[in-house]
Write a protein that binds this DNA or RNA. Structure first.
Length: 716
RNA sequence: GGGCGAUUAGCUCAGUUGGUAGAGCAACUCUUUUACACAGAGAAGGUCACAGGUUCGAGUCCUGUAUCGCCCACCA
């Protein structure tokens, strides 16, 4: 027996070497896997953002996926796990810009597009290297030879091709529509990048001709020349749709037009409102329905335009009270409600208050009909049907309802951003002419300065990583992928977009199964965040307790879709378990040696029963993995190894092994060796390092444990 | 406002088609006996949030209530 077993298990001494052995073996690449493998199993790694380091959520994701991948590999499938990173356009750009601003006091415009982008890329590269190291430390068996980046050349081809095809089909269009403008980031953002913040502010009531109207934003009201009420509101029955009346307003008299629209809520305030189509989504829709004029009041820096008269040039915050004061002087202020609580839309990255604006942007039309298999359909319908038809199963299933709910409320997706870091929109301009093309159409053509929403490129991830638009062997073998595993928090951002992209471009689903894991929280159930100071760094935990322990602590007790409360105590518990397995191996190896037992010896029936029982545990674990209950699978193995195999079977075996009957002892010792082999295999996906390390000291092992066959029961 | 979850031992959670409640941590007692004290043996701990209902029987199914959490919408 190897003398290493005389000391407690030391993860630090083995983990790095083991990972190197795996990597050197080439088995992470399915092309090198031993044996005949026909059926394939593939996963793409949700690419971590190159904005810094990995957190425990990433660690949980890596643990789950590695379990699925190692299990599939051991079951003899052609198994591919593609790694990669995401350039995360706006997140990375704003992070770098903040850093430069803080350290050097300059912004991106001071540096210029080219220099600034270089700086972002340097940061992204450093971040990438950190991430890759962390992925290795977790033991993730990804195929590094296929590593991808959402902003590399290969992915750029895919992005351009996707854009061009969708544009050709009329599903990408340039339009003047109301969008979410971030005045601080100076870019448009999508609905999903908005965070609502509850705020208490003042709510003002003004006299508007014969009406009283309410608003929290007097600074937008200059151009309000439409007064809207519900068609069935009896109080205003005397006013007909289209009636005009002269009203005294902020900067003098204006002509107001009566509009009857069901969007006006009779219950709210006085039931009458004036509208500002340029700076409100709802108002924009009302204006569209009735073909009303729209006027811009606030510019993209948050300053009032000349329409505001004497207030022109003022910032929103300065203007508001001054306007109210003027209205008070004119006797048009009815009252002020001081405790108006409402939700304010802010930008996720910059925290600036969003100013809706009408702007020319690029959109993906989700409701537009197009022909597919000689039938009319829409992108929305494709997204819905992918799940309805069961071509995609979402686990846990209640997320399917949430998914449908989101799809039904989906509006056109604004994909252009006024930021620099990202894929340039493949549109070219020359005077009034516009062309869509990856390359410049020639002399005098200028490319659109906007970049694409980061989710446009990550939406292609399952197939852009496999070589699309080229018809590669990887595409044929590994797409659609088997499982997409990710946190439920990006179901809409990402999962839905992949279904859309794959559905349109390949006429297929991007994956057969979506497995959503929960969020990792601290022991009190709070989100981990810098401000709370409760962040647990996975690398620290790996240093202290080993990757195996960290992995198990993130798996056991985490039912699909449920948040996991993690404490260091739990991790320590699983480190103890790694040591337990270590000592089990020591005992079994020692006993085997003492009895002169061979692991492939023929066994007495009652000894064979022990091996069979171990196979039974592995089989039970397999059943749980098949139904994506990794928590139960890991627990099954844990319980069996510790409380059945160690506590009962080994204890019962002691007298036999030391007994007078040498043949009996030999058979039992051989059985324990065989059972241990089975248990190492069964535990390998969950705790790959310690099991592989022990495996290397087992008699009669030929190859790495990671490519051994999953133990099957002999009697069914 | 609309939707979705959760509520089981001190803590974190299992509990599969209804059949007298389980695990891991923590705490308690004993044990350093050659696999392991990163351990073993043992004991303790629960009106399964509450109220009804279905049933021979409910933690499990139905209805309602309460508390907590999340998602969507954003009412000028």
């Amino acid at each position: 027996m190897d003398s290493k077993f005389l000391k407690p298990y030391d993860h630090k001494a083995v983990e790095t070497d083991i990972y190197k052995k795996w990597e050197d073996s080439g088995y992470f690449n399915p092309d090198n896997l031993p044996g005949e493998r026909t059926e394939s199993f593939s996963i793409v790694l949700p690419p971590p953002n190159v904005t810094g380091t990995l957190h425990l959520g990433h660690a949980a994701m890596l643990a789950v996926e590695d379990i699925l991948v190692r299990f599939a590999r051991m079951r003899g499938l052609k198994t591919l796990w593609v790694p990669g990173t995401d350039h995360a356009a706006i997140a990375t750009q704003s992070k770098v810009e903040k850093e430069i601003q803080k350290k050097e006091g300059v912004n991106r415009h001071d540096l210029g597009r080219e220099t600034f982008l270089k700086r972002v890329e340097e940061f992204a590269q450093a971040s990438h290297d950190t991430i890759v190291n962390q992925v290795r430390r977790m033991g993730a068996s990804v195929d590094w030879s296929r590593e991808a980046y959402t902003l590399d050349d290969s992915r750029r081809r895919a992005v351009n091709e996707a854009f061009i095809r969708m544009h050709k089909a009329g599903l990408i269009y340039q339009g003047e529509r109301i969008v979410n403008w971030d005045p601080k980031g100076q870019t448009v953002i999508s609905d999903d990048e908005i965070v609502y913040r509850e705020e208490k502010s003042k709510f003002y009531y003004f006299t508007y001709g014969p009406f009283t109207i309410g608003t929290a934003r007097p600074e937008t009201k200059f151009g309000d020349k439409y007064v809207v009420m519900h068609p069935d509101d009896a109080r205003y029955a005397q006013y007909k749709h289209g009636d005009t009346l002269e009203v005294e307003w902020i900067n003098g008299p204006i002509t107001a037009t009566v509009i009857k629209d069901a969007a006006a809520n009779p219950e709210f305030g006085t039931g009458v409102m004036t509208i500002t189509p340029w700076h409100s989504g709802i108002d924009f829709e009302i204006a569209e329905r009735h073909k009303l004029n729209k006027e811009q009041v606030i510019d993209k820096y948050g300053k009032l335009l000349p329409i505001a008269g004497e207030f022109a040039g003022l910032k929103i915050a300065e203007a508001r009270e001054k306007i109210v004061e003027k209205m008070r002087e004119k006797g048009l202020l009815v009252k002020v409600d001081e405790d108006y609580v409402h939700n304010v839309a802010t930008a996720e990255r910059t925290e600036a208050v969003i100013e809706p604006q009408i702007m020319k942007q690029w959109f993906v039309a989700v409701n537009k009909e197009f022909e597919r298999d000689s039938k009319q359909t829409t992108l929305k319908e494709i997204m819905r049907k992918a799940v309805e038809s069961k071509n995609i199963t979402i686990t846990p299933d209640h997320f399917e309802k949430i998914y449908y709910h989101w799809i039904d409320n989906l509006r056109d997706w604004c994909i252009s951003r006024q930021i620099w870091f990202g894929h340039r929109v493949p549109a070219w301009y020359k005077g009034e002419e516009i062309r869509i093309s990856a390359e410049s159409p020639g002399e005098g053509w200028e490319q659109d300065s906007d970049t694409l929403d980061t989710w446009f490129s990550s939406g292609l991830w399952t197939f852009s990583t496999l070589g699309w638009p080229e018809e590669t062997a990887d595409m044929r073998t590994y797409h659609p992928t088997s499982v997409l595993e990710t946190g439920y928090d990006i179901l809409f951002f990402w999962v839905a977009r992949m279904i859309l992209m794959s559905g349109f471009l390949l006429d297929t689903v991007p994956f057969q199964r979506v497995y959503l894991h929960g969020l990792v929280r601290d022991e009190k159930g709070r989100k981990m965040s810098k401000s709370l100071g409760n962040i647990i760094d996975p690398l620290d935990m790996i240093e202290k307790y080993g990757a195996d322990a960290v992995r198990l602590s993130l798996i056991v007790g985490a039912a699909p879709g449920n948040d996991l409360k993690l404490s260091e105590d739990r991790i320590r518990g699983y480190k103890n378990f790694a040591n337990k397995i270590w000592n089990i191996a020591r005992f079994v190896l020692e006993s085997g040696q003492a009895a002169g037992a061979d692991s492939d010896a023929t066994l007495a029936p009652e000894d064979e029963a022990i091996v069979e029982e171990a196979r039974g545990a592995a089989q039970e674990a397999a059943t749980h993995i098949d139904s994506f209950r990794l928590d139960l699978a890991a627990d099954t193995m844990y319980q069996f190894i510790w409380h059945r195999f160690a506590d009962a079977i080994l204890e019962e075996s002691k007298p036999l092994l030391k007994g007078p009957d040498a043949a009996r002892a030999k058979s039992r010792a051989a059985a324990l060796l065989q059972a241990l082999e089975v248990l190492l295999k069964g535990m390998h996906p969950f705790m790959p390092f310690v099991t592989e390390e022990i495996w290397s000291s087992m008699p009669n092992t030929k190859d790495l444990l990671m490519v051994e066959a999953w133990p099957a029961k002999e009697t069914v």
